Each structure stands twice: as structure tokens, then as C-alpha cells.
Computed example of a mutant assay.
Amino acid sequence: MADGYNLPAQTLEQWKALILPEKDWFFFMDDECFSYGEMDVLVKTHLSLDVKTSYLTWSLPEGVFVKKMHPGEFEELSFEARQRIAEIQWELGRGLVFDHEEMGEWFGEHVPSIYRCAGKNLVLLTKALWYSLEEHQKEGFLRSYNRMWVDDRPQWIGAAASFKAFMHREHPHLIPFLDVFPDRNGANCLAAVAFAIDASCDVYHWMQVEDFNHLMAGRKEVGDMISKDVLVWRDLEGDVIHACYVLNKDFVFNKHGQTMFNPWQLLTVEQVIISWGKPVIYR
């Protein structure tokens, strides 16, 4: 569904630099299963958002170990070792391990480094493999990969002229951010709400819940919905898990996650409720 969202060439260049960290990271359940040197216990709270986004570390089980390798170091291992490592990465649900069939479609050309697991041909994206790709292959991969992150259709291009006039009049600072991908990781839903309320706020900031609660101080829970309200979703413990800004009775300004693959969006109220359920309305 990512087709139609704005992905400028400059943003693509930033993505190329951020898609992988400087070293390759490999994850294991047992720190003694391979003799690759010392491994570290993975502490998820210490990871940068760039690493989390690259390897989808939120999908990894607790108690895993990590081994970092310099670019090309993995490729120097025996095929048997690389094969087993690739299997483990796939089984753990780590990011940047792909079915070869879809990768071939993304790159548009033959993709090397094929491994086998669960009846699939796998491609393990490493720094060395990334370096070996042509620029058009990198762009083809990124344009295809980001489609996996977006479920909603863009609304701004096809919006009614009267609504576009309303936005230019009432929310002009949001226009450059409607259905647009950011060029870096970090911008989250709470920062999007803060920016919608106050254009001096940093829309790229990873806003914490405490700061968001301070921003919301003074707002009251209401039963209906009008322009400039804030929709908030909470978990069973009452913690904020999502928020978006009401533009009018039909549309909201939204960002589903804090990664560079989550665009700022113009969504219908119906779309965001389908994604998150019934919200609490604050005014």
C-alpha cells in the first residue's frame, strides 16, 4: 500500500545509509553454539532505534546473544557455518532475512548468497552484500521493502479541493508532512500530535509518554469529536500506546510507528479506528 506516499530521492539516500549498521549483527539463543569469539547478551533497552529498525529486535525472544562482525567477516566463514547462521536468524524472526523469491522481484536481478531453511531459499542481507549492489538495486529494494510497513492507502492526493483549502487555511504547517516518509528513524505518533498542535515542536523527535502526558495536561475527555481534538489509545494498564490529531470529523494526522518506514499520514477516522480500535477523545 506504500504506493502514492511521497518518498523523495534525498530520503532514499538517507535510507541507504541507515538500513544496516556499520557492523553485521547476528543473534543466537546459545552463546556456545559457534566458536566465533565472544558474544554479548542482547540488552534491548540499550539498542539504538536504527539497530532496532534494521533487525526488528522487538520480534526477538528474551535472553538472546548477539555477535557483531565487521563487513565481509561473515562471508569469510565456511558455507556450512553461514548456512546455519542464516537458519537461526530466520527461526528467530530477525529482520533483513528474506525469501529469495520476493527478493528477486525486489532487486529485479539475480540475488546471490542463497541459504536453505524450512523449504525456503533465503537471502541474508549483510553489509558486504549491500555494498555489492548497484544503486538502482538498493533503491528497488528500499521501495519494495517499505511496502511491507504500510497498510493504508494515501488520502491527500485524492482529497477534495474543499478539504485541501481547509488544510491550507487551518493547518498549513502539516501540508509538507501529509503522506510523506521521514528520512530517519525516531519520529513517533506522539511527536506528530505535538507538532500538529504546535508547529514549533520537533516532528522528528521520539517523544516519550511522560512528555506527551504533560502536553495533554488540561485537556478533558469528551464524547464527540471535532477539529483539534486528540485521539488516544491505551493498553490494559492505562499506558498510552498510540495517539493522533483530529483535523475534522473525517480525517486525522497520524503516524503508526517511530521508524523511517512509517509515513506521516492523512487517514480517515475510520482507517485509524480499524487499526487501533475505539479511542478516548481529548479536547
Rank of each mutant, 00 (worst) to 15 (best):
V51W: 03
H168W: 00
P172S: 01
G108K: 04
G238P: 12
P8V: 06
F26A: 07
A118L: 08
L47G: 02
M103Q: 13
N213E: 14
E170P: 00
M167Y: 02
P263F: 01
K278Q: 12
A161R: 08
E75M: 14
M29C: 02
F74Y: 13
V64W: 07
L133V: 04
N146S: 10
R219Y: 15
I19C: 05
D151H: 08
E139V: 00
E139Q: 01
T259P: 03
M167K: 03
S48F: 10
W156V: 05
E134K: 06
K67Y: 06
L124R: 08
L142H: 07
P112M: 09
A159I: 03
Q258T: 04
S59G: 14
E135N: 10
L18S: 15
H46I: 12
W90S: 01
K23L: 13
K164V: 04
W149C: 08
M167F: 00
G108V: 04
L247P: 05
W264P: 02
R82Y: 06
D3W: 05
Q89C: 00
V280M: 12
T11W: 00
P182D: 03
A128M: 12
E75T: 15
D235G: 10
A243S: 11
C244G: 05
E221H: 12
A243N: 08
K220H: 13
D40E: 15
I88M: 00
W130K: 09
A86F: 10
H173T: 06
D179T: 04
I226V: 13
I197L: 14
Q258C: 06
I88W: 01
F177K: 00
Y282T: 11
R283Y: 14
G218W: 10
I114M: 09
A17I: 12
Q14Y: 11
E221A: 13
M29D: 01
L231E: 11
I226C: 12
M148H: 07
W15P: 03
V269W: 02
S132K: 01
I88G: 02
R143A: 04
D224M: 13
D224I: 13
V246M: 09
W149Y: 13
P61D: 05
E134T: 07
A191K: 09
H173Y: 03
Q14T: 09
L60K: 01
T268E: 05
N213I: 10
L133C: 05
H171N: 11
F212L: 10
S78D: 15
R94C: 04
H214M: 10
